[in-house]
């Protein structure tokens, strides 16, 4: 898609972890451009650095070297506080283990990010209704996560991740805890919602099947993208 703006740009990105005396290089001078609206799968073995890369893009972690630019903002130049505010506005997360807040019901789990972004209550309620309808959970708004199935929980997590209309959606093994049928459903839903809203998505996954839904597939191997 020539002419489409770059949404995520990595330049010479490195991240190392120290384990006692040993230094473990997880990401080694990565360069990457992801265009707006593109969906990219990030594949690699366990420990290859997929989650680390997602954390760096989301501003959860900071690199040892290099830059991460998301939606035109150099995330690596921000303070921790500003990274938090940036993440709050521009990033949506979907995790393997769903990570819903167990003490909040479905609607409130979605409302949480809207409230953090100071979306007015009436507008927030309307958006929650729409999103829950979109993920087919309109009738479970008052339910708590512990009574939902894995697929339902992940659909709530997707609604939560998209509620504040982030520029970028980061998904870390979003179907890793689900059976094949459920995983398929969740994947279709995620794909549809992301594409319909024109958002950029980066998915870390082991699965070839998941990767096949994406526009582009990248392999992370020995700290390098292939």
């Amino acid at each position: 898609m020539p002419g489409t703006p770059i949404e995520i740009q990595l330049r010479a990105l490195s991240r190392r972890f120290r384990e006692g005396e040993r230094e473990h290089v997880v990401l080694d001078g990565l360069d990457l451009d992801i265009q707006q609206g593109e969906t990219v799968a990030l594949r690699g073995r366990s420990g290859s650095g997929k989650s680390t890369l997602l954390n760096l893009v989301g501003g959860i972690d900071a690199p040892d070297a290099g830059t991460v630019t998301v939606a035109g903002v150099d995330v690596t130049s921000l303070t921790e506080h500003d990274r938090t505010l940036f993440r709050r506005q521009h990033i949506g997360f979907v995790y393997q283990a769903f990570n819903l807040v167990p003490t909040l019901n479905v609607a409130d789990n979605v409302r949480l990010v809207l409230e953090l972004n100071q979306v007015p209550a009436v507008k927030a309620s309307s958006r929650i209704d729409k999103l829950l309808a979109a993920v087919d959970l309109a009738d479970r708004a008052g339910s708590f996560p512990d009574v939902l199935s894995g697929g339902e929980q992940q659909r709530v997590a997707i609604a939560r991740a998209l509620a504040h209309e982030p520029a970028v959606l980061l998904a870390d093994e979003p179907t890793g805890n689900l059976d094949d049928t459920t995983a398929d459903g969740v994947l279709m839903l995620l794909d549809k919602l992301v594409r319909d809203s024109g958002r950029t998505m980066l998915i870390a996954t082991h699965s070839q099947h998941v990767a096949s839904h994406c526009d582009r597939v990248l392999e992370l191997h020995n700290g390098k993208l292939e």
């Binding site: 921790e80 938090t84 709050r88 506005q89 997360f93 953090l116 972004n117």
Partner: peptide
């Protein structure tokens, strides 16, 4: 909460 944007 921190990942979703709650500041310190």
């Amino acid at each position: 909460l921190r990942a979703l944007g709650l500041t310190r």
